[in-house]
Write a protein that binds this DNA or RNA. Structure first.
Lengths: 115, 115
DNA sequence: CAAATATGTAACCTAATGGTTACCTATGAG
DNA sequence: CTCATAGGTAACCATTAGGTTACATATTTG
């Protein structure tokens, strides 16, 4: 799919941010990104929690479309899908252009220091 | 504060993504961004929910440091703080450089179409 | 086939979220 | 001063999230 044709609706955006709002899930995402094609069992050793806990986090990532998988025999191969992240990145780059460009004052600093 | 000195720890990152994981809060953020210095009462008409509901969402945004406020008499002036968003944007730009640059295949598409 | 492996589902518990109503405090205007 | 306005706190309720244990299924391997 062409990069710029991929768009997130509000519900999908909720799901992506929700999925990213957990350390464990971000770590999971990093692990899969670093080991594309890894299977669920490969991930378990990196976590304290039970296998089912990891599976649940994985499902949240999959429902946010941040991770996709492919069944291979009794195993499941995992991959990061970058499109949702890129869609958000792209949208922010558009919407917050003024901010990224640093054209606006740092209001917080201004307020807190009273300057 | 200099832009690149602002860094989010894991807890702060949790808070930012959590805050963004709600349509209402993203809308709130947009409204404040479009009306810097607006007061709480200004926002109410844009929402169906009660004032307290809005206040609670506002607090989530403030705890994520995405919104800052300044008391002015009995009013409270609201501003968006862009630093957390910029910090995330910057980190992603570093970490996902290969992806942003489109150097990697779209694995999802590959998997789903079986090509 | 039998047993080990990889994964998935169900049911349950606790804590956090998202919302409410009712009440309280501080400030500005007449 | 009186009262309307802007905002905040407390207590509550329903739903969701994050985790668990126990059990079930499918696939390899010996």
């Amino acid at each position: 799919m062409r990069d710029d044709l991929y768009q997130l609706d509000e519900a999908a955006t909720d799901a992506v941010f929700q999925a990213l709002a957990s350390r464990e899930r971000r770590r999971l995402l990093d692990l899969i990104r670093g080991n594309p094609g890894c299977i669920v069992a490969d991930l378990l050793s990196a976590f304290e929690m039970s296998r089912i806990g990891v599976l649940k986090h994985l499902r949240v990532l999959e429902e946010a479309d941040l991770v996709v998988s492919e069944k291979a025999g009794r195993e499941r191969r995992l991959y990061v899908n970058t499109l949702p992240l890129r869609a958000i990145h792209r949208r922010w780059s558009d919407e917050f252009d003024d901010f990224w460009a640093g054209k606006l004052l740092d209001l917080k600093d201004k307020i807190e220091t009273g300057s």
